[in-house]
Design a protein around this nucleic acid. Sequence first.
DNA 1: CAGTCGATGTACT
DNA 2: GTACATCGACTGG
Length: 199
Amino acid sequence: MTILPSAFYRRPTLTVARELIGKVFIRRLDDRLLRGRIVEVEAYHQNDDAASHSFRGRSARNDVMFRAGGLLYVYFTYGMHFCMNVVTEDEGVGAAVLLRAVEPLDGIDMMRVHRGAGKKDRELANGPAKFCQAFGIDREANGFPLDGSVVGIADAADVPSSRILATSRVGIRRSTDLPWRFLEKESPWVSPGRPSAIL
DNA sequence: CAGTCGATGTACT
DNA sequence: GTACATCGACTGG
């Protein structure tokens, strides 16, 4: 398993988003290894995307989005949840890809401790805040490099484009016309969230 | 199954 | 004040 280099992330955001489907997110925690196969993501960009945190320019909250690709951007929302993104493109460009759902691979027992006993495997990480909770990601991880030391993404076989679906994004009110959500077709591990518009 | 709604902190107007 | 890249509990069918 090779950890994706920073050059992977320093490319157009939509390309990175599509190629992240099928890759394996890795998290080291307390001498344990948590792994999950990415099945759903969304792209966000400062340009032409009013739903992006970076749309109105750089600020204390979104600063990490404007740094060079290859970092984790974690934000707090709805008073109780965290969501994580991978930062893309070059320094000065505010763009990232939201990681929305993974298929749990390793450390499922630890994920269940984080999420609460009795949760079905499908409910461990089928949504951006659930994914963060299962993998023990919170504001402390904001800005962490995706180099595999604490977090990272391992390369894996490409998912053929025939098995990738693009839809509008979930849970947003602006820029609902952009088909910037990518998911693996017919995967049981994707979030139950409904797209913001029918494309 | 679908639809509704409250929780609860923070960034921004 | 208001909106928020959400979730889980609850309702009714």
